[in-house]
Amino acid sequence: MISRRETSCLAIKKNKPVPEPSDEIVSYVKEKKLPTYKEKPIPFLYKKKSLLTTGIEEVGEYNQKIKEEQAKYPDGFEKTGTVFIEFATELECQRAYQGVPYAKELRLSRRFTDIPPSDIVWENAGSGFAVRKSKYAIAAAVLTLTIIFWSIPVAFVGFVSNIDHLTEKVHFLRFINNMPSSLMGIITGLLPTVLLAVLMSLLPPFIRKMGKIGGCMSVQATEQWCQQWYFAFQYY
Rank of each mutant, 00 (worst) to 15 (best):
T7V: 07
L10A: 07
K13Q: 12
K14Q: 13
N15T: 11
K16S: 08
K16P: 13
V18H: 12
E20G: 00
V26Y: 00
E31N: 07
K32G: 01
K32Q: 06
T36V: 14
E39R: 06
I42D: 04
P43D: 06
Y46C: 05
L51T: 13
L52T: 08
G55Y: 02
E61V: 11
Y62Q: 14
E68Y: 03
E69C: 12
A71F: 10
A71W: 05
A71D: 15
K72N: 12
Y73S: 04
Y73H: 07
Y73A: 07
Y73N: 04
F77T: 14
F77E: 15
T82Y: 09
I85R: 13
I85Q: 11
E86W: 15
E86N: 14
L91T: 15
Q94T: 12
R95W: 13
V100N: 12
A103S: 14
E105R: 15
L106N: 11
L106M: 12
R107W: 06
R107Q: 14
F112S: 03
P116C: 05
S118A: 08
S118R: 07
D119G: 14
I120P: 05
V121I: 15
W122S: 13
N124Y: 13
N124V: 13
A125F: 14
G126H: 13
A130L: 03
S134H: 11
S134K: 12
A137R: 02
I138E: 04
A139F: 01
A139G: 03
A140M: 01
A141R: 09
V142K: 01
L145W: 00
W150M: 04
I152D: 03
V154R: 01
F156C: 01
F156E: 01
G158I: 00
N162G: 03
I163C: 03
D164E: 07
T167L: 00
E168L: 01
E168S: 05
K169P: 02
K169F: 09
L173I: 00
N177K: 10
N178M: 06
M179V: 12
S182H: 02
L183E: 04
G185L: 06
I187K: 00
G189I: 03
L190E: 00
L191A: 08
L191M: 09
T193Q: 08
L202C: 08
L203V: 03
L203H: 01
P204V: 02
P205F: 01
I207Y: 05
M210T: 04
K212Q: 10
I213Q: 05
M217G: 03
S218V: 02
T222D: 10
Q224D: 09
C226L: 11
W229Q: 05
F231W: 15
A232M: 12
A232H: 09
Y236D: 04
